[in-house]
Amino acid sequence: MSILIDKNTRLVTTGITGSEGKFHTLRNRDYGTNVVAGVTPGKGGQDVDGIPVFNTIREAVDKQGANTAMIFVPPPFAADSILEAEEAGIELIIAITEGIPAHDELRAFQVIKKNGRSRLVGPNCPGILSPDKANVGIIPAGFFKPGNVGVVSRSGTLTYQVGNELAQSGFGNSTIVGIGGDPVPGTDFIDVLGLFQDDPETELIVMCGEIGGDAEERAADFIAAHVTKPVVGYIAGFTAPPGKQMGHAGAIVSGSKGTAAAKAEALEAKGVRVGRTPTEVARIAMEILGH
């Protein structure tokens, strides 16, 4: 098994006629993802290498049975595209676009939460890969094979780095989920941890965080209460200088200084081992699973 995407995924890409949208959609299809449609307003009736293009997401759902959307439109229009997918009844919306205004993300998130019929992953994320089943997004899939390690990460390229270290140590993956580094991720660590906990194929979970916010601290509490499978953590930014301060109010909200050390400490306090480098993450995983 895997989580979120598999052979039942029927993908529609919004922004499919842009150069990046086209490049990565075709790569996803080459990998074996069932790409059923693309959407670009004004280009309905055309096709991209045989993939039918529609003017609206609604049409892609009605005519092609799309159930998953990959959002590839530029930042000023991306939240609108997410809301269009939600309104069309898409179950899983994966937003790759980087640089969406924070308030746009906030409204899109709140609408999705209120209506309760879709899940949003991202924005500003690398997407999801279930090896040998489906790849939706920009993860370079060639590095990964099927297996029993689930990976969830806030950072795209760090996901590849850690995933690659695991692969070199002989591990395969159930699913790799990039939740994105934006202020309002549609899906949090804790959502994905819960999905991996319930996935019979996943035997170990690797969670890659980074400085800022308190998502890792909240994940630590969730793991203690709900996750019985072993979790290995990694936090990027131990040596990063304090970034631009969000102001005093930000520090009150997070209830933490948002440093890598504070996050690692929070995880370790709940029994989660934290690797100090991507290589060490793979080493800890080997110790736990006894490879």
């Binding site: 990460s153 950072s155 780095q161 930014g237």
Partner: peptide
């Protein structure tokens, strides 16, 4: 994330 990890 990767750049921060690289610094580390």
């Amino acid at each position: 994330g990767l750049v921060m990890s690289t610094l580390d």
